[in-house]
């Protein structure tokens, strides 16, 4: 019975693994390791944002503006480099800092009492608009060629982007599961009122996770510049959706209070494999299928979690009270 409960709670990412196996079996390209390695540069942004979103979703929040922040950061890099004439290194740092500022802005809004959903829905529009406005009629497309080489040339056999993802995931894993701020996130997600009464620094934590999300989005923006050698403001329209899909498929509960970064990893692998497998097919089906899979996993995961909670309550009936 206990194993059944564990099974129920892990349903989302078990489904993800199942999907993964189906894809591997049916798409011949998945058999080769090199193909998997080539996915990393392609889906760097989605994976990085999924990792950054995990702490936020653990607290029961959400950040819909990550895609727009990434794009804004990439535009900032272009603007600082070309229009302000700064060296490329400074421009890249400016882009990352820009992302951090966006994240801090989101955190401030949430601390002021705006629902994370609503706040990031609004900032999503605002940041994208700023990106469009700043990039102007002629987006920056002339970056030093060394940048793209940096992206493409493998480092110790693996693509730079994969190294970036590994480092990012390790840092996130360490912080969320092995440091005290990370451990506090679960309490925020389960019962924020109880967290407040237990003297947890709720406001600082919220500011921190949204700022971190912005920082990672800034890094993604830099990644976009490296990858495409251009800073386009209308790029990457559905990054948020795909990143959230990774998180949901990794079994992180959307209402907060449960989840593990290992699950996020599984979710990322599955979503990227799904997208890669579908890229051969018409891109029209990509969107439809992703949306359908997201809903299906969310619904099934929620139903399974409820069932598991009922079973657990029954199984842990306290032993009969014996007088001490």
């Amino acid at each position: 019975m206990k194993y059944f409960i564990v099974l129920l709670r892990s349903l989302p990412w078990l489904l993800a693994v199942l999907l993964l196996l189906v894809l591997v079996a049916n798409v011949s390209a998945f058999g080769k390791a090199r193909y998997w390695l080539s996915l990393a540069p392609q889906f760097f942004a989605i994976a990085a944002l999924a990792i950054a979103l995990t702490p936020i979703v653990l607290t029961g929040g959400i950040d819909l503006s990550v895609g727009s922040t990434a794009v804004l950061s990439s535009v900032l890099v272009g603007v600082v480099f070309r229009d302000l004439g700064a060296p490329i290194g400074v421009a890249l740092i400016a882009g990352v800092l820009g992302g951090l500022c966006c994240g801090l802005f989101n955190g401030l809004l949430v601390n002021l009492g705006v629902l994370p959903l609503v706040a990031t829905l609004a900032t999503r529009e605002l940041f994208r608009g700023l990106a469009l406005a700043l990039s102007g009629d002629n987006p920056v497309t002339q970056f030093p060629p060394e940048l793209n080489a940096l992206w493409v040339r493998p480092l110790l056999g693996l693509p730079v982007s994969l190294w970036g993802l590994i480092v990012l995931w390790l840092i996130a894993y360490a912080v969320v599961h092995h440091t005290w701020p990370g451990r506090m996130l679960l309490a925020l997600g389960d019962n924020s009122e109880a967290a407040r009464f237990a003297a947890l620094p709720v406001r600082r934590l919220q500011l921190g996770i949204y700022a971190a999300s912005g920082l990672v989005a800034g890094l993604c923006g830099v990644g976009l510049v490296l990858k495409y050698g251009a800073a386009k403001a209308d790029a990457e329209q559905s990054l948020e959706l795909l990143a959230i899909a990774c998180v949901v498929m990794g079994g992180i509960r959307i209402t907060g209070g449960a989840g593990h970064l290992g699950g996020t990893l599984v979710g990322i692998l599955t979503v990227c494999a799904l997208l890669a497998g579908l890229s051969a097919a018409a891109s029209t089906w990509r969107d439809t299928l992703t949306g359908a899979v997201l809903i299906a996993v969310a619904v099934l995961g929620e139903a399974a979690a409820r069932w598991a909670a009922v079973l657990e309550a029954r199984s842990y009936r306290p032993p009969t009270e014996s007088s001490p």
Binding site: L241, I254, D287, T288, L294, I295
Partner: peptide, 17 residues
């Protein structure tokens, strides 16, 4: 019993597709 934000995020993608 899923929050509308997740559902409509998914259906947005489905309708677009």
């Amino acid at each position: 019993r899923v929050h509308p934000i997740v559902v409509t995020l998914g259906t947005m993608s489905i309708y677009r597709g």
